[in-house]
Design a protein around this nucleic acid. Structure first.
Lengths: 347, 347
DNA sequence: CCTATATACTGAAACGTTACAGATTGTCAC
DNA sequence: GTGACAATCTGTAACGTTTCAGTATATAGG
């Protein structure tokens, strides 16, 4: 009953803090703090009482307070290239991440970097300023300085795409090797024998995955490659279109394409038609897509779906898992492509 | 010279703080703090000296410290509907915002909400927990509870799209009235007389903007409307396609469409072709698009560009402006549509 | 009855920052 | 020489949280 002085402030003014709860329950702030996080040395009844009151008045821990004291930011950062990322990728991956962190205390911050910058810059910034508990990066390279850097500093992260440095870290990847082999097999199955690949940019890890799948399947089915490596999916629509048209006007031209991105596929088809050829008759195209729109573009297109929302969710789960103490090696996942889908009339 | 005790910690261990700077310069932390923010009562030389040292050792203010002390979060939140937002919208607007906040201390957090939730929920969360200094919302309604709520609480925000409540707040909007009139005029100009509009969802403000532009221009050019209001751009691709096909099989069918979204346009065209009709011959379509891809889809399409990246940048500028003390009424902008663009062969 | 030990709780300090209320100079007027 | 005043600088407290080192009470062992 010796609750005498020191209640200068508090009561109903701003949002409730531990002090407010302490005052209301007649306990010390330490006890309240502990009761809320189920510490062992708190009596069962006290714990329940505190948690009840906290819930009633809508107590939310002050993020700045926690962060200042503990260093824990409760932030996941998604690092994106503002020029090069595929558009649907961005929204879907954000939604995937959001979905997973929705019922956690985590916030998602988007950390952009531009073409001109060193990709390591935003990572350095995040690490040096301690702005995030975990990081998600994309456009992963076989020898990725960002992954190495974060591994050295011990900050949890996950990569969209794999590395190839002999270092273990969480990742999520789409199986582009399987995509390319499926694509080639399907094209061979409908009689196509001279295939061209519009590959991912050479510096990214999934370039070689795709390429290996492509060439392995080529020899498996006995088809041949028509080189098409002056452009990648990173090139502009106009460039891809022009190069495709050039290629299709040659004597030896492909009768099948494998395309690693939906927007690029539009350009390929445009190039094919620029050259006076027809999709489905003179040439077939298998393309990855992340939203179900390509079949509207040309019904003859063959598609394989890559689910970026799923990727975002997996990546978020991985980072959270690592933060939570799981072994990085156990937080790796690979997503299998669907079979090649030919056009089907909806409904 | 009475610098005696109390240097228990500091030096080169973690990242530098005001205390580190104070120790290095031989000044008090208060002085250092003020010198860094150009306070008037600091000597010119001291100021320069402190700033020099700070720059040299790469001092960065601790966000948690600032936030705890001042309440300033240095965060802008972008609130998004995870189901309904247009995909390219998300990435472009994020990049636009990023571009503007790049050389400010602000971080961008993405706060998602799903169909099932009250759109006010994420706003309440942000305001109650004081998680952001400013908020950007989209899918703005004529009578928008979110805008009203934030206006009441005095938290700076900007809306993508206008409201119609007689309340003044920053916004950025695309002039959809002008878009619709331009579109109708263009269609009339090429001889189309029976026009249908695929409108935005009725609850959003730009629905009536678009509709008014459409009907005003119809009477101006003496064309008639074929009602097409069983679907909106929010409906699924399949539904729009089906409804379009139904409409095009009627006796009295449109010979021109105005479409408020690119993805929906794909569905409209598919529906037209399902009905055995041909784009450019039987019917023309004017569509908004946010990335330059529709002309690859069908060269006959007529397009008007809406720049979401610009929108993001403007919205960010507006919120920052309001935070910085500018009058909300001075932070409103409207972006004019381009003329209707017919297909031109690239280069 | 005294001491040891477990249980349940508590105050003080610290994280890095800024605001408030001084403190120490030097300059100038008179 | 004194008082007033401006120009610079400084220590303390506070924001909300967690951790450390206790303190009080009850229970048990001897």
């Amino acid at each position: 009953m010796d609750r005498d002085q020191t209640e200068k402030d508090d009561e109903g003014s701003g949002r409730p803090t531990l002090k407010t709860l302490a005052f209301m329950t007649g306990l010390g702030v330490t006890t309240v703090s502990r009761a809320l996080k189920d510490a062992p040395e708190i009596g069962a009844e006290t714990r329940r009482r505190v948690q009840l009151v906290a819930r009633q008045i809508g107590y939310r821990p002050n993020r700045a307070g926690v962060r200042l004291r503990t260093g824990k930011t409760n932030v996941i950062s998604l690092v994106l290239n503002t020029e090069r990322e595929i558009m649907s990728f961005v929204s879907d991956i954000i939604y995937g991440v959001s979905e997973v962190i929705a019922d956690t205390p985590y916030h998602l911050i988007v950390t952009p970097y531009s073409r001109s910058q060193d990709p390591l810059d935003p990572i350095r910034y995040l690490v040096e300023t301690g702005s995030a508990d975990g990081v998600i990066i994309s456009r992963t390279q076989p020898n990725d300085p960002r992954a190495r850097y974060m591994l050295e500093r011990g900050i949890p992260f996950a990569t969209h795409g794999r590395t190839d440095m002999g270092l273990i870290h969480p990742y999520h990847d789409f199986d582009n090797y399987a995509f390319a082999t499926e694509a080639v097999r399907h094209l061979a199955g409908i009689g196509r024998r001279r295939l061209a690949l519009l590959a991912p940019p050479a510096e990214l890890t999934y370039h070689s995955h795709t390429l290996n799948g492509f060439t392995d399947a080529l020899s498996e089915v006995g088809a041949s490659e028509i080189p098409f490596n002056t452009v990648s999916v990173d090139h502009s629509i106009e460039q891809i279109r022009m190069r495709t048209a050039q290629l299709m006007r040659r004597d030896v031209r492909p009768d099948g394409f494998v395309s690693s991105a939906a927007a690029a596929t539009l350009a390929i088809v445009a190039g094919i038609e620029d050259a006076g050829l027809r999709l489905g008759r003179d040439v077939d195209v298998v393309s990855k897509q992340s939203s179900d729109l390509l079949h509207l573009f040309r019904r003859e297109l063959l598609v394989v779906n890559e689910n970026f929302r799923l990727a975002g969710a997996e990546l978020a789960r991985s980072v959270l898992g690592w933060i939570g103490g799981a072994a990085p090696g156990s937080l790796q996942s690979l997503s299998m492509p669907t079979e090649v889908l030919a056009y089907r009339r909806p409904d």
